[in-house]
Design a binder for these strands. Sequence first.
DNA 1: ACCTGAACACCGTTCAAGT
DNA 2: ACCTGAACACCGTTCAAGT
Lengths: 195, 195
Amino acid sequence: MAQVRPMRADARRNYERLLRVAVEAFAEHGEGASLDDIAKRAGVGSGTLYRHFPTRHALLEAAYLDRIEALAARADALAAELPPGEALLEWLHELGTGMIRMRGLRALLGPAVTEGGSAAATACGDCVRNAAGRLVRAAQEEGTLRPDVEPMDVLRLAHGVATASELADGQGRHIRRYLALLTEGLRPRDADAGS
Amino acid sequence: MAQVRPMRADARRNYERLLRVAVEAFAEHGEGASLDDIAKRAGVGSGTLYRHFPTRHALLEAAYLDRIEALAARADALAAELPPGEALLEWLHELGTGMIRMRGLRALLGPAVTEGGSAAATACGDCVRNAAGRLVRAAQEEGTLRPDVEPMDVLRLAHGVATASELADGQGRHIRRYLALLTEGLRPRDADAGS
DNA sequence: ACCTGAACACCGTTCAAGT
DNA sequence: ACCTGAACACCGTTCAAGT
């Protein structure tokens, strides 16, 4: 709650430059983008980067924070205009698409869905988990989502669908279909087996 | 078919040492294991490693070739003792478990399920795709697998399930459950919606 | 024919020196 | 209080020199 001490003018300028460059770099080279290169492109010494963002993860988190908040807000918007089941499905599609388009996002969201999560109780993790929680609960009350799955399960499976979809074509063209397969199941719904 | 020229004795010894060490190293450090370290642990110069395995991928492939062949053989064994649907499910479980336990395997099998696959028409890729093809076709004829999914889809989704499962706990404890969710679907089978 | 290891380029991270 | 950039450790890859 206490206002953090405001940064010195040059520090703030460097901080913002680093973030802007980092977003570009992660988009270009994925989560493994060279930190040294980011510092150079931002026109600061490498030490400055480490001062502001002690770990790669901290930089990823700061770089994508607004996208993640937008995603969480999107969950509520979808919940307001669609039936719960469809809202969840559509949100998972946007989440998956985002994780493929913004390659750093996947690496960032990964730790947020691990079991212990002790070290990963990050702000953005909570943000996504809460959004998923609301959509999941609503769909379960509606009866269009199995009652025995938890928000974390759904998030992990969305992660998996994004992985499967990116494997397919390096982009996300199969994501909608794979989400449908996950929703409906690989086993035929009507039991008309036989020739 | 023509027998490749037999390696010189020292070359063959180095080749085998490198493979043995590589399997250990990939298990220990994942697909990113240091190649230099592998060479050192095998007691050879780094140049020797590159002579035998020009790319990391070549080394991964050679290191895991026998496991992949075993996996393919396992597909037929399962097909012989179980109904097609169950055989497919069980095989996917073993495949997924393998991709989590032997961390290099996932990186190796990834390119084998991409669309173009031009550069990835590797021997071990064919091996896995063929095995999956047989199981998928049989299950579809039995009527326990949707007719509109292809072997590649199933392999990619297995990849995704392994990813989701590893995210969960760093091991594969959720894999069976996630495979079941994929098979049955996230939507309840019986439409008893409502309170 | 094959091996070795020095050499080069690159990256992450730290920290003494500067302002 | 913050920044810089040299310094160190590490890794991948190549290649001239050796056997």
